[in-house]
């Protein structure tokens, strides 16, 4: 079995070790005898969403985000169709903000793609630090590091998880990230997948099921990954 992963604009959106997520997806498929074909898209490349099984959007600085936004505006409809049709999307930090209607900065409004009914506003000070969240799909928490000036409000959408430690989407409503169909948006980097193999596997499974109808993932030996995960969980949530 094989998945095509589209890494959107890694030259612009690749803050905080984001490429570690791609490395995780690729390795965890290879270890199971499956193939991951990763295509890196440059800003002016043509993107055919029908050929992709996973779309990955990383984080960038505000300047870089603006450049991406201008470009993505032109392919918004195709992207939206991909999402509504159950396409898998992982969007981190800046990429997450882009999925919403807008990101309101002090003197500027960065329009988003309106893929999801969410929006972001800049707040006073950045929300920085290790974070631990609890998602519905597993008893093992998701850990990561957040570093964002924007506060995201997800309205009626479901958050990826409940904040056990850290700030989450906006520091006030106790939610972190968003999960809609097969889209996951989150502020957590660290990067996200290496210390959260359960989440990475869920994403791979979703993409395989979308493509092949059903999929079973062979278990892997994840001692190192969960040791790194529980180091953060224990340090920040156990008194």
């Amino acid at each position: 079995m094989k998945l095509s992963i589209g890494h959107l604009f890694p030259e612009l959106l690749n803050l905080y070790g984001d490429r570690g997520n791609i490395i995780s997806l690729r390795r965890r498929m290879e270890w199971r005898g499956m193939e991951a074909e990763v295509t890196e898209y440059k800003l002016n490349d043509n993107i055919d969403f029908s050929k992709l099984d996973i779309v990955f959007l990383g984080g960038g600085s505000d300047r870089e985000q603006l450049l991406v936004c201008k470009r993505l505006g032109g392919i918004r409809e195709a992207f939206k169709d991909y999402v509504e049709g159950g396409g898998v999307v992982i969007a981190i930090c800046g990429g997450y903000q882009l999925l919403g209607h807008y990101y309101k900065l002090k003197n500027e409004l960065v329009p988003g793609l309106s893929i999801l009914d969410i929006f972001t506003e800049s707040g006073v000070g950045r929300l920085i630090g290790n974070a631990v969240i609890k998602a519905d799909f597993s008893d093992v928490p998701i850990v990561g590091f957040e570093n964002h000036g924007g506060r995201t409000y997800i309205g009626d959408h479901k958050p990826l998880g409940k904040v056990l430690f850290g700030s989450g989407n906006n520091g006030s409503d106790g939610g972190e990230g968003v999960i809609y169909k097969n889209v996951i948006g989150t502020y957590l980097h660290g990067p996200l997948f290496p210390k959260n193999p359960h989440l990475c596997d869920m994403v791979i499974k979703n993409a395989l099921e979308k493509k092949y109808g059903k999929a079973e993932l062979a278990p892997l030996e994840d001692e190192a990954e969960y040791k790194a995960n529980s180091f953060i969980v224990n340090k920040y949530t156990r008194k």
């Binding site: 690749n14 070790g17 490395i23 920085i128």
Partner: peptide, 8 residues
């Protein structure tokens, strides 16, 4: 505090 750069 953030060591995610080790992935870069």
């Amino acid at each position: 505090r953030d060591i995610s750069w080790i992935w870069d």
